[in-house]
Design a protein around this nucleic acid. Structure first.
Length: 124
DNA sequence: CTCGTGACGGGGG
DNA sequence: TCCCCCGCCACGA
């Protein structure tokens, strides 16, 4: 089956498809992993057709832990509702705890920032 | 070809 | 603390 070349968008979908139920990722996080020409803005942009690609689009939220779907064709609270069905708790303002639900693909776990204090100091 | 938009993010006031 | 502005890059007119 000839499949299209891994499109710009498809790389985003590949990652989103790996997000387990009850977990989330942010647009910026995905952009950071893909690197090369990807930004939070463009990642969000390609998500327009995510529902058409059988991708769990509801698991991608903004850096504040909420949904930015205000301007899109989907109901504003649909994303939040779907996530709550998966067990994600949201505050009254519509934000969830990213520290608690954020998911990292294998090989992209968050690194500790403590080491930054050890390096640097006398060089330069 | 150029201009403007947008499911974002971070810094400054 | 919240709100506003700028930067980021793909895509349509």
């Amino acid at each position: 089956m000839n499949r299209d070349h891994p499109s710009y968008r498809h790389k985003v979908y590949e990652i989103v498809r790996q997000i387990p139920s009850g977990r989330v990722m942010t647009y910026g996080q995905i952009a950071e992993i893909l690197g090369e020409g990807y930004t939070a803005r463009t990642v969000g942009y390609v998500m327009h057709a995510a529902g058409d690609e059988n991708v769990p689009w509801q698991r991608v939220i903004n850096a504040k832990g909420g949904s930015s779907t205000g301007k899109v064709t989907v109901p504003v609270n649909l994303q939040q509702r779907l996530l709550e069905e998966e067990g994600v708790k949201f505050s009254e303002k519509g934000f969830c705890d990213l520290e608690r639900y954020r998911w990292y693909p294998e090989g992209f776990e968050a690194a500790d920032d403590d080491e930054t204090a050890t390096l640097f100091g006398d060089a330069d």
